[in-house]
């Protein structure tokens, strides 16, 4: 099992490196002169020259890339051009919003999807099971940011139960901060849960045809016990796979939803950075977010080993 861990770790590092190269190429090499992009076509030649110097653009490309990577490994993420502060601090502040938001959304998604998925599988021949499936069709079709708007309309404007946007700092009032994340997390979770519910159901239905399910019933377990204790873990491999893939769309959703609810997270920051042409910040956040997605997929890979003992003995 240790060998499999190391193999996967090497794969993770290589993928991260490749992702960094891709980001670097798109944001640093393709535009030709990043300084020109950041300052716009009307920039003075001496300002341009100064920025080039500051960004180290006079160095060869490979050197720039390597020093960028080396810097990030040492915790030096560069200086934001628009804010003129270290990017690391900026990002760390915003992560305190984005990370809890994403975790909350994942939690809601998993609880909702497993519950509904098991329910739909247990009742696949009945109307109530079919109704759940019909609802998931709608869930998949609704854009998360529109669902966010609808939630604001109902729960913030009409009922006044939740704030329509904004975010009080954690240090001031943690409860209020958490409260402000509920609607955005729900908006994010809906689509994800709809997809995951479908996956859970079909994976379970597949498993329910297996012989061991009948064995478990012959032992005297009820249908419900068989579903949760025996079927679910067997269905978990496809469910985990989809969860890993969904994480990318969750990250994308976070960017959009933070803008809907005016939450000062990474998504909001990167969006503003694009408007301000702050390539330094854009670059770091893109790598960070993509890194999270890749990390998640490797965690899922490792999770397989815990879900299915048969995979532990197989050579990677």
């Amino acid at each position: 099992m240790l060998a499999q861990f190391t193999n996967k770790l090497i794969g993770f590092v290589l993928t991260m490196l490749a992702a960094a190269v891709l980001v670097f190429v798109v944001l640093e090499v393709l535009p030709g002169d990043p300084a020109l992009v950041m300052l716009g076509p009307d920039a003075q030649p001496d300002t341009l020259a100064a920025l080039r110097e500051q960004l180290g653009l006079n160095q060869p490309v490979v050197f720039r890339f390597l020093s960028w990577i080396a810097g990030m490994l040492w915790g030096d993420f560069g200086i934001s051009y628009a804010y003129n502060v270290p990017v690391l601090g900026l990002v760390a502040d915003r992560l305190a919003v984005t990370l809890p938001l994403a975790l909350m959304a994942i939690l809601i998604t998993v609880v909702l999807a497993l519950g509904l998925g098991v329910f739909a599988a247990a009742n696949s021949q009945r109307l109530r099971g079919q109704l759940v499936m019909a609802f998931t069709q709608f869930g998949i079709a609704i854009p998360s940011f529109w669902f966010g708007l609808l939630l604001i309309l109902l729960f913030a404007i009409h009922l006044g139960w939740f704030p329509a946007g904004g975010f009080p700092e954690w240090s001031k009032d943690p409860i209020a901060s958490l409260h402000a994340l509920v609607l955005p997390a729900c908006a994010l979770a809906l689509v994800q849960a709809a997809i995951l519910t479908r996956v859970t159901r079909s994976a379970l239905l597949e498993v329910l045809h297996e012989d061991f399910v009948r064995t478990a019933r012959a032992k005297g377990l009820t249908r419900r016990e068989v579903l949760w204790r025996h079927a679910l873990q067997n269905a978990l491999v496809p469910i985990a796979t989809v969860m890993g893939l969904q994480f990318a769309s969750l990250v994308a959703g976070t960017i959009v939803i933070e803008n809907v609810f005016a939450l000062p997270g990474l998504g909001r920051l990167i969006f503003l950075a694009v408007e301000q042409r702050d390539l330094v910040v854009v670059r770091v956040i893109v790598v960070l977010l993509v890194g999270m997605v890749i990390l998640m997929n490797y965690l899922v890979d490792i999770a397989y080993l815990f879900i299915d003992p048969r995979l532990r003995t197989r050579r990677a």
Binding site: V26, A248, V251, V274, V282, V286, V293
Partner: peptide
């Protein structure tokens, strides 16, 4: 690797440059 880049991030990178 492309799978790991959400659409919005790709668009953001392109929009930034």
């Amino acid at each position: 690797l492309l799978f790991a880049f959400p659409v919005v991030l790709l668009a953001i990178m392109l929009a930034a440059t």
